[in-house]
Simulated scan of single mutants.
Amino acid sequence: MNRKAGYSLLEVLIAFAVMSLVLAALLPGQAKLLSRTTEADRRLLAQDYALSRLDQIGITTPLEIGQMTQNYRNWTVEEVITEHPTRDNAIQLLQVRVIISAQGGNVLATVDSIRPAP
C-alpha cells in the first residue's frame, strides 16, 4: 500500500465531532461556575463596603441611636444603631449594624459591632 502520512477527512471529522460533544457537555457547567463567581465577587465587594461603613460610624458620622438608609451603586445601605443590653448599667453599649441589600431585596452583607456609647 502506498499511503501518505497524515489524517483522512473522515478521521478529522470524527475528531471534530467528539471535540464538539465534549465542549457541549462542559459549557453549561462553565457558565454556571462563572455566574457563581460573579455572585461571590458581588458579595465580597458588599462585605468590604459594609466593613468600611462600620469603621466610619462614630468617626466621620456621629454614633447616635437610630436608623439611616442610603443608596450606593445599586445597593441599599442600612445603618442601624440600637442599645445593647448589659447585666449592669455601669456602661452603656450600642450595637452598630450595617446591612447591604441588592435591588431585589436579598441581603448581600451584614456586619455588627458593639461599641461604648459616647
Rank of each mutant, 00 (worst) to 15 (best):
P116S: 13
R36V: 06
N2F: 05
M19Q: 00
L33N: 11
P118Q: 08
W75A: 10
R43K: 14
Y72P: 02
A17S: 15
L51T: 03
E64P: 00
N74I: 08
Y7A: 01
T61D: 01
R42Q: 13
G6Y: 06
I100P: 02
A50D: 10
S52E: 03
T69H: 03
T61L: 08
E78A: 13
I114K: 02
Y7C: 07
T69N: 08
I57C: 01
Q70R: 12
V111N: 14
E11T: 04
Q56R: 05
M68T: 06
A15W: 10
T38G: 11
Q70H: 10
A117C: 10
T82H: 00
G29W: 02
I59E: 12
Q47R: 11
L94I: 12
G105I: 07
G104W: 02
V98Y: 06
Q103P: 08
N71S: 10
N106A: 05
H84E: 07
A25M: 09
E64C: 08
A5P: 00
I59M: 12
R42N: 08
N89R: 15
K4T: 01
P62S: 13
R42K: 04
P116T: 06
A15F: 12
S8Q: 03
L34I: 14
V107E: 10
G104P: 09
D41C: 02
G58T: 08
A102F: 04
S20K: 00
P116W: 09
L108V: 07
D55Y: 04
R97C: 02
A24R: 01
M1Q: 01
M68N: 02
Q92P: 07
Q30N: 10
T60R: 04
I99G: 15
L108Y: 01
I100V: 06
L44I: 08
D55M: 03
I99P: 14
V96F: 11
Q30K: 06
G66A: 09
V12D: 01
N89K: 14
A109L: 04
A5N: 03
L44A: 14
I14H: 12
I14Q: 05
D112A: 07
D112H: 11
T38C: 06
R43F: 05
D112S: 04
A31N: 13
H84I: 11
V96C: 10
